[in-house]
Design a binder for these strands. Structure first.
Lengths: 204, 204
DNA sequence: TCCAAGATTGACTCATCCGTCAGTTATCGA
DNA sequence: TCGATAACTGACGGATGAGTCAATCTTGGA
């Protein structure tokens, strides 16, 4: 071998650029030349690392998911109460800062592509499984120490995940109604409802 | 005038075809020729009624929304209890039958297109406003007759709508986990939680 | 029967863009 | 210094597909 491989760095560089283009223009309008320009290289270089445009976008989708999961991993290992962890998790997952918003844009595109692409459906399946299990884990912890109500934890996790997804989608689309504070209020309300706060009794 | 206009029928015919193509292939892969073929006419005929492809897809999105709202209108006017109406509404809105699933596919595409298109964002804004107000209305009715808990009805409506959106999206993408019965279970659980069922007291 | 205007056709133009490839450059070890 | 190979360039071929348009057909009314 005459040169040490720069493949890992280059691929990352290209995938980051691809995600930025997807965020800004969507896959519909994504051109290989856009990605190349953003990554500061020629289209030939992009094709040197990714055979086809499809391979490129799929890799970008996967990269985006992987990074998002990794970013959340930190929260899971915190030594705070389950309820706190749940709040932190949900909060970090709602589209707030630029990084999370960008990731959300790419997720949205991934889902819609997945409607017509079995490979992406499989990718989503794997990621969502992990996603859900992270939340389920927290809920189980909360049930173990008696701070979260004793209901099917999978059902509760589904509720939390779906709620966040639905809120986020409308926020992303730019609904004036769905502001950041509104999203947080709705989520807080749900977490309160599934939390056991000492002394509080709700008739419902 | 030498002939009575067939414009209304033709436009509807084309928009229906466009929605079918969007459902089957997505807007990404939608070709004007696909729509023409499905509507049983030439590409020229499609362009006779819709100047550009963009005008066509936007009209299709709007048509899809309008029809969906119209289909739900029936439920609102039923003389059943608010809780029942809420259940019926949510149930009809989850992707179950082919018609609702098709509509969902088109909605999903609309949202993602809207991320990069102000016109579609405005369309979504209008529709969602109506959507939310339908649910809010039901909830207010329920609060008036004491069958739904006394919380901010807009917050409760946001919760219901977002939950359904999130669940549906995962179901559409084909998650094995998110089955029809699971979606219904999660929604039932939420509606139970916001309903006041006589004699039941929950500690939470 | 014939006209006027709406409706429709489909071949064609023109622009776009993916993927290729022959050629060039950079960087290592020997 | 000199291969050897990885890394990279960018012009080009070829395919695709939106939108145009001249020609044709259809229909209701005069």
């Amino acid at each position: 071998m005459a040169r040490p491989s720069v493949e890992a760095q280059r691929r990352e560089q290209i995938l980051r650029a691809a995600c930025e283009v997807i965020r800004d223009k969507g896959i519909n309008a994504l051109r290989v030349s856009d990605v190349a320009a953003r990554a500061g290289m020629s289209t030939g270089a992009v094709h040197y690392y990714f055979e086809t445009k499809r391979a490129l976008t799929h890799a970008a989708f996967e990269w985006n998911f992987t990074r998002s999961l990794a970013r959340r991993e930190v929260i899971l290992t915190r030594r705070t109460s389950p309820s706190e962890r749940l709040r932190a998790f949900v909060s970090s997952y709602l589209p707030g800062d630029d990084e999370t918003t960008a990731a959300w844009h790419v997720w949205a595109e991934t889902w819609v592509e997945a409607l017509h692409d079995a490979e992406l459906r499989a990718l989503n399946e794997r990621v969502y499984e992990e996603w859900r299990s992270m939340i389920t884990e927290i809920i189980r912890d909360g049930q173990a120490d008696g701070t979260i109500i004793d209901r099917d934890p999978v059902l509760l996790a589904d509720t939390v995940v779906s709620l966040v997804d639905g809120l986020s989608m409308q926020a992303l689309v730019g609904s004036r109604h769905m502001t950041a504070s509104r999203m947080h209020a709705v989520c807080e309300h749900l977490i309160d409802a599934i939390s056991v706060s000492s002394g509080r009794v709700k008739v419902s």
